[in-house]
């Protein structure tokens, strides 16, 4: 363990701004990418459902 307290940890030896800007932005971007992929999946399935219905109608 490198830190004596939690506030010590947050202060990052005086480099809090730079360290947390790096970690924060990365976390945000990764979460955004996951959300985007989930949305993409929903949309692709929705479009495929429409195509399937069209095929059903045209075959009946």
């Amino acid at each position: 363990m490198n830190w004596s307290s939690f506030s010590d940890f947050l202060a990052m030896g005086g480099y809090a701004f730079f360290v947390w800007m790096s970690y924060g932005a990365t976390a945000l971007l990764v979460v955004a990418e996951i959300a985007w992929v989930v949305k993409q999946r929903r949309q692709s399935l929705a479009r495929a459902r429409v195509q399937r219905k069209i095929r059903e109608w045209s075959s009946s």
Partner: peptide
């Protein structure tokens, strides 16, 4: 995960995607 969406998107006109929707319970 992304390539699965791309596959469904680009093969949406094919019969197997239609069967897949049923098999995976989306319809």
């Amino acid at each position: 995960a992304r390539v699965r969406s791309i596959i469904v998107e680009r093969e949406q006109h094919s019969a197997w995607v239609g069967e897949l929707l049923v098999a995976e319970g989306h319809v």
